Simulated assay, not measured.
Amino acid sequence: MTDPLAHLLRVLDLEALGAVEQASAGALVGDDLFRGESVHQPNGRVYGGQVLAQALVAAQRTLADHASRAPHSLHGYFLRPGDLSVPIDFTVERLRDGGSFSARRTHAVQHGRPILSMITSFQELQGGAELAGEAPAAPAPEDVPSAADVLGGIDHPYARHWSDDSAFELRHVDGSLYLRPPAPSERQLVWLRARGPVPDDPFLHRALLLYACDQVMLEPVLRAEGVAWPTPGLSVASLDHAMWWHRDVRVDEWLLFEQTAVSAQGGRGLGAARVWSPDGRLVASMGQEGMIRVPAADAR
């Protein structure tokens, strides 16, 4: 893949198929229907952030009469693993169009069964009170090792994916989880940026932030356990994702993820994040719960 970002932008440009004429799993007659392909992943499964972003794009495409409305929140549930070998169909139910807000329910469907169900709310740009807090202190991204610095020269599918094939560059302030267990901590700071310029479309930048964040949302839980990604027997899968956009964002500028491990129990972990722009503005907040099965300590 010579240009991962360009490929991702093509994947997010869904094909419009019109209205659903016959009800099927996850769809109602009259729902808007779209279709999309997938970005290759070394684990052979569809990346969850991709399905979230595509579902958001599908929902936004149904706002023809309210095109100025931007997504401000969503909640999605991952229901089944995605199949990389077949397209994904997205059905959108138009729940409501009010004076200021619109709501859409989107199902991502493969093999006649939903793999994701998501509700998104959109809002007209409006004025109001401003409150954002303060960004945490962090070294400049230029002073933090990149994934390429850590994984460069390692001939392994995951190493190539994280260092070269991803549309986004990640820089972990206190060391990554790529190779070895980190010092246990319930907090994590990560710099993130797209690997090239992105068109000046505010909605596209919001969709790309949704795509990118799924890469790191559960890492604080692993870090709190002192567990690295290559740990033998480790099993991780996203269960649901909630997100709130507070302000416009540019993903081709460095963004600081301030992350915490909220809880871990019952084979599940909850990670939370606040995302800060380079000038210290809070642009988004998000939370994700996932299945996290960590092998016994003597097997690590």
Rank of each mutant, 00 (worst) to 15 (best):
L74P: 06
A138Y: 07
S117L: 14
L52K: 04
A228L: 06
R113D: 09
L14D: 01
L79T: 13
L255K: 05
V275K: 02
H156E: 13
S176M: 03
H156D: 15
G133N: 05
M243P: 04
Y178T: 07
L52R: 06
A16Y: 01
L52D: 03
L14F: 01
R69H: 12
L74E: 01
P87E: 02
A58L: 04
P181M: 12
D214M: 05
T2Q: 07
R35L: 03
V251K: 00
A137I: 11
W276M: 04
R195W: 10
W162A: 14
L74C: 03
L210R: 05
D89S: 14
I88T: 15
F78P: 09
R300W: 14
A167Y: 03
G266F: 10
Y158M: 13
E21H: 12
L222K: 08
A27F: 03
G267M: 06
A108P: 12
Q50L: 15
V92T: 08
I119K: 05
A27Y: 01
Q50A: 10
S263P: 02
L125E: 14
G30Y: 06
G48C: 12
M1E: 02
T231S: 02
H205I: 12
A59R: 03
V11M: 00
G280E: 04
A261Y: 04
L56G: 14
G76S: 15
G26M: 10
S121Q: 11
A148F: 04
P182I: 09
S166I: 11
R274Q: 14
A273T: 15
H40F: 02
V29E: 11
V294Q: 01
R160Y: 08
G44P: 10
E37H: 01
L151S: 09
E15F: 00
G99Y: 07
G271L: 06
G280N: 03
A129D: 07
Q126T: 13
G82T: 13
V11S: 00
G82E: 02
A297T: 13
H111N: 07
T2F: 06
V221S: 03
M286Q: 15
S85Q: 05
S235A: 14
G112W: 02
I88G: 00
G266W: 09
P230R: 04
D248K: 10
A53H: 07
P278E: 01
V227W: 00
S73N: 15
R35E: 03
S163M: 05
G49L: 11
E289M: 13
Q41K: 10
V92G: 04
Q265A: 14
D65A: 12
V57I: 09
D164K: 11
V150M: 00
P114T: 11
D155Y: 09
E93N: 15
A148N: 03
P81C: 13
L177G: 05
P4A: 08
G26V: 13
V283F: 06
S38L: 10
D31K: 05
E37C: 02
G271R: 06
V190G: 02
Q54S: 08
G30Q: 08
V86E: 01
